[in-house]
C-alpha cells in the first residue's frame, strides 16, 4: 500500500517531503496531547506545521508519509504512534481535494460510491457544548453503516486550521472528513491562510486547555511567521494509513495489521 500511495503521487507530480517528527513546539489543539522528550521537545502529532512552512517558503504541492504521535490514544482504532499520509494541493479547495481523496481510495480499496452529508445532517446539531457534540458525532459515525461518506460543513467551533465560510450562526468550517465503514479515515481543509486568525485560534485553544486543566502549549511562532509571510491558497488532508490497511484486509482492529502494536 505504501508503494501504491507513492506511485499515485508520483503520477500526479506531487513531491514527497520528510519533515522532522521532533519539534520545539506542537499543536495547541484542545483534545490532542503531544508526547514530550526529556529535554522538552515534542513528537509531532501531524506534519502540518512543517509542511505549511515549506509551502509558505515556495514549495509546490507536497505529501508526507510517515509516523506521527499522539499521547494517550490507544485502543481498537488508535495507536500512540501511527502512520499518517498528509498532502497539500496548491490552488485546490476542499471540493477539489475530496475528488482526489476519492481517487486515491478507489485505487487502494477498489472503487465504490461516496455519499455526502453535512455535519449538521449527520449529528443533528451544529451548535452546542463541545463534549456533547463530540459524543453525538462519534455515535453518528458508528451508526453510518458500511459505506464511504464525506462529512462536510463542520461547526465553525471545530474549524481547527480550516477557513470559515459564512457569518454568525451560519458560519461553517471548510473542513471535511471521510468515513469508511464507520471508521474516520481522512480529515481535510481548505486551509486558513490568515495569520492573525490563526493566532486568535491558538489563543482560544489554549483558553480551552486552561479551563480543562490541560497544559497550555506555546504557539508555533515559526508557523505564524510563515503564514504572515504568505501561505498560498491551498487545501490539505491527512489520512490514517494503518486504518486503511485494516479496512483493506477486513481486519477490525489496528493491532491485527500494525506490527509491534501498543496492544
Amino acid at each position: 500500500m505504501l508503494a501504491q500511495i507513492r506511485a499515485f503521487f508520483a503520477e500526479r507530480e506531487v513531491i514527497e517531503v520528510q519533515t522532522p517528527t521532533l519539534g520545539r513546539t506542537s499543536v495547541t489543539e484542545p483534545q490532542i496531547e503531544s508526547l514530550r522528550t526529556r529535554d522538552g521537545a515534542f513528537l509531532q502529532t501531524s506534519p502540518e506545521h512543517y509542511m505549511k512552512r515549506l509551502l509558505a517558503a515556495g514549495a509546490p504541492s507536497i505529501y508526507q508519509l510517515g509516523p506521527v504521535y499522539r499521547a494517550g490514544e490507544s485502543g481498537r482504532l488508535h495507536q500512540e504512534e501511527f502512520t499518517m499520509l498528509e498532502w497539500y494541493r496548491i490552488g485546490y479547495d476542499d471540493q477539489a481535494l475530496m475528488t482526489e481523496v476519492a481517487a486515491l481510495i478507489d485505487g487502494l480499496l477498489g472503487p465504490a460510491p461516496y455519499e455526502r452529508m453535512t455535519y449538521e445532517s449527520l449529528v443533528g446539531a451544529v451548535h452546542g457544548e463541545p463534549t456533547e457534540l463530540d459524543l453525538a458525532y462519534a455515535e453518528a459515525v458508528e451508526a453510518l453503516g458500511p459505506l464511504r461518506c464525506f462529512v462536510t460543513d463542520y461547526p465553525a467551533s471545530q474549524a481547527a486550521l480550516a477557513r470559515v465560510r459564512g457569518d454568525g450562526g451560519d458560519a461553517r468550517a471548510a473542513r471535511f472528513e471521510l468515513i469508511i465503514d464507520r471508521v474516520e479515515i481522512a480529515n481535510g481543509y481548505h486551509e486558513l491562510t490568515d495569520a492573525a486568525e490563526l493566532g486568535a485560534r491558538m489563543a482560544k485553544d489554549n483558553q480551552r486547555r486552561r479551563e480543562a486543566g490541560r497544559e497550555v502549549m506555546a504557539p508555533d511562532g515559526r508557523l505564524l511567521a510563515a503564514m504572515a509571510h504568505g501561505l498560498p491558497d491551498c487545501a490539505g488532508v491527512a489520512i490514517g494509513v494503518d486504518r486503511l490497511v485494516m479496512l483493506a484486509v477486513g481486519a477490525s482492529s489496528l493491532a491485527e495489521v500494525v506490527p509491534f502494536a501498543d496492544r
Binding site: 483534545q31 494517550g72 485502543g75 481498537r76 463530540d134 458525532y137 462519534a138 481547527a160 480529515n187
Partner: peptide, 12 residues
C-alpha cells in the same frame, strides 16, 4: 472498555 475518539474531539 473501548477507547472512542473523533480525531479532533474529546476522548471517551
Amino acid at each position: 472498555n473501548e477507547f472512542v475518539k473523533p480525531g479532533k474531539g474529546q476522548a471517551f
